[in-house]
């Protein structure tokens, strides 16, 4: 008897993704949705999508979704969670959203130990706007606003937001993962599971930073993008559990 062993998760709508070929966003969407399904929290989860490519996440996640202004996801999620403390609230944010325009909201939401989960998608560029320099663009990496590559003297170095957040007392779990290989995708799912479980247990602020390919703006093929994460991005943003107070 043949058995269906892999299909669309319950909490991803049957809509084609608008993302470019090889984009990591939709892999991450799927992983989050799988975790929501496996933890049985689909009917009490509220998601907060960002500004950027993933703003349309509300078209894909089949859970309640409330849009936030650019960078304000954690503040908005705070408002939801404080009113509905028994619901599961996650914000989904890109690197520009969380580590540039929304740095303040991110740090202070973490510092208050808000019991929410943040999915931080790091693709080293502003994707939606056409590939400008992001706070996480690598030194030497080309972007539409760093002709000749990011220069430390001119542009500053890439920012290690997750490491910064680990210093903040309200955070309980921070891990950096990637979706550029089967193994990393599986680890990412484990990390997302752990982050949501931390929230379910009421432990405090959890965040998973996920290195994600952006073949369009990197101007690489999908497979080259995955390789580039291994060879270059991880040199600056190594995969690791940055903080784990869950045990």
């Amino acid at each position: 008897m043949e058995e269906l062993v892999f299909t669309r998760p319950r909490y991803i709508k049957k809509a084609p993704f608008h993302y470019c070929p090889g984009c990591g966003h939709s892999i991450i969407h799927r992983l989050v949705a799988e975790v929501i399904e496996e933890l049985g929290i689909g009917e009490k989860t509220i998601g907060v999508p960002p500004a950027g490519c993933a703003v349309l996440a509300y078209d894909y996640f089949d859970v309640d979704m409330g849009e936030a202004p650019h960078g304000r996801g954690p503040a908005l999620a705070t408002g939801i969670k404080r009113i509905l403390p028994d619901r599961i609230v996650f914000s989904y944010q890109g690197d520009g959203d969380i580590a540039a325009i929304g740095t303040s909201e991110t740090i202070h939401t973490a510092n208050r130990g808000e019991n929410i989960t943040v999915i931080f998608v790091n693709n080293n560029c502003y994707g939606m706007t056409g590939g400008q320099m992001a706070p996480t663009t690598l030194l030497g990496q080309n972007s539409t606003t760093t002709p000749g590559g990011r220069d430390e003297n001119r542009d500053g170095p890439p920012i290690d937001l997750s490491e910064m957040l680990a210093l903040v007392r309200g955070t309980v779990y921070i891990e950096r993962t990637a979706v550029n290989s089967i193994r990393n995708i599986r680890n990412t799912k484990k990390a997302i599971t752990k982050a949501f479980k931390a929230q379910i247990a009421g432990l405090g602020f959890s965040l998973v930073e996920i290195l994600s390919p952006c073949p369009t703006n990197w101007k690489m093929s999908s497979t080259d993008s995955c390789r580039w994460i291994d060879e270059s991005v991880m040199q600056t943003f190594p995969l690791k559990v940055i903080k784990d107070e869950i045990g």
């Binding site: 509220i46 907060v48 409330g66 936030a68 202004p69 304000r72 503040a75 908005l76 999620a77 705070t78 408002g79 939801i80 969670k81 404080r82 009113i83 509905l84 303040s104 909201e105 740090i107 202070h108 208050r112």
Partner: peptide, 26 residues
């Protein structure tokens, strides 16, 4: 009841957006 001293005016209004989405008078 929830009171939050926000880190900025911007954060405060966005917290209000979230609370309102969740149904509260904010």
């Amino acid at each position: 009841g929830t009171f939050i001293q926000a880190e900025s005016e911007i954060a405060a209004i966005n917290m209000v957006i979230g609370a309102s989405m969740a149904g509260a008078r904010a």
